[in-house]
Simulated assay, not measured.
Amino acid sequence: MRGENKRSVIVGIFVLVGIAILVVGVMTLGGQQKKFVSAIQLKAVFDDVGGLQTGNNIWFSGVKIGTVRKINFYGDSQVEVEMNVEESVGKYIRKDSKATISSDGLIGNKIIVIYGGSTEAPQVEDGDRLVAVMPLDTDNMMETLQANNENLVEITADLKQLTGKLAAGEGIVGAVMTDSTLAQNFRTILANLERASTNSNKMIADLNSFTSKMNQKGNMLNELVTDTTMVTDLRATMENLRATSANTEVLTKEFQAITAKLNSSENSLGMLLNDPEFAKTLKNTLENTDSATYNLNKGMEALEYTWPFNKGFRRKAKADLEKEN
């Protein structure tokens, strides 16, 4: 009798422990599933849920806020997902927020992620439908990766072929890499470029020095650049030079005309300079005139001693002598 009571007590204890574990499990699962939290229902329509199941979690800003309540077919080939979301979180979710399907980890269960929304839009209410955004398709991603792998293999093969040609000295680059003469020429070109760069830097330094000197007050270049009075004088001088040049041109033309007339036999001076017959005649005339003048002088001297004029010349000589005394 005593052993039976002991056995009953032990069985009762195990039953109580089992009930307690059951209650704790139910409470835990209920807490995870948000069964005992006041919630609102939101909906979203997807073209493909990708394996999403009832009871999967719903996340917002990295926080679990609810679970998938129900999944129904919608329209022709779409799927409507009903979500239980904590009512206390509803004030942070806006009507223009979006819902998409993601994964809990790399290969974890599917989840729904709510994101976005502007502060200008009102908060969601029970029964609102969010805009659904389709996630990236894993199959498409794998196909893209496969295509990229094939392209990478082709690029690797081309690169291998290219490096082989370079090592064999084919092409310009290969020749430069393998031919010592071309390499030396290339070094010479680089040295010349470096020398040209040095000379350019020196020229720039000299130009800067010249510019700084030109900016110093007191030198002629600075005065030419800054002194407006000198600029005015230079302009006036240039105008005078231009006028002088024009006058010189006119004078040259006139000299050319005079020279042309002097070279012509149509005028007296031109005939005198260019006609030898006229010059000979003029010379004979001058010689004859000189001879006639000489003879005239002789005649005048002889006239003094002739009888009709002798008395007059004597009077004149006597008058001149008295004037001198």
Rank of each mutant, 00 (worst) to 15 (best):
E82R: 01
T228G: 12
K35T: 13
S197R: 07
D233C: 06
K98V: 01
W59P: 05
K283T: 15
Q53A: 06
N148Q: 08
G270V: 09
E80R: 00
V124H: 01
T163W: 01
T228P: 08
S88T: 14
Y305F: 04
S245Q: 11
E277C: 04
V24W: 04
S118Q: 09
N151C: 03
S61I: 02
A99V: 03
L152F: 03
A168S: 15
T67F: 00
T144H: 01
A257T: 14
I204N: 05
M142D: 11
T211F: 00
P135C: 03
A205R: 01
G31A: 08
L145D: 10
K6R: 13
A260V: 11
Q41E: 14
T229D: 11
I112S: 01
A44I: 02
V15E: 12
E277G: 09
L182E: 15
N109A: 14
V45P: 02
R7E: 15
F73T: 05
G55I: 00
E4S: 12
V15N: 12
T285S: 14
M142Q: 10
A236H: 01
T232P: 03
A292F: 04
Q32E: 14
G174H: 06
M177I: 12
L22T: 14
M27L: 08
G18W: 07
R2D: 15
G127N: 09
S268V: 15
S77M: 00
K110C: 07
V63D: 08
L207I: 03
G108R: 04
N240F: 00
F14I: 15
G108Y: 07
R195H: 05
K202F: 04
V45L: 03
S212I: 03
A132G: 06
N185R: 07
I189P: 07
S264A: 13
I172T: 14
L224M: 10
N215V: 05
E82G: 05
M141V: 10
L241Q: 08
T306Y: 04
G218E: 06
A302P: 08
V26D: 09
A246H: 08
F210E: 05
D227H: 04
K110T: 13
G12S: 13
D290W: 09
S268T: 15
A205I: 02
I65H: 01
G127P: 09
A147P: 03
V11D: 15
M177T: 12
E154R: 02
K165Q: 12
N247E: 12
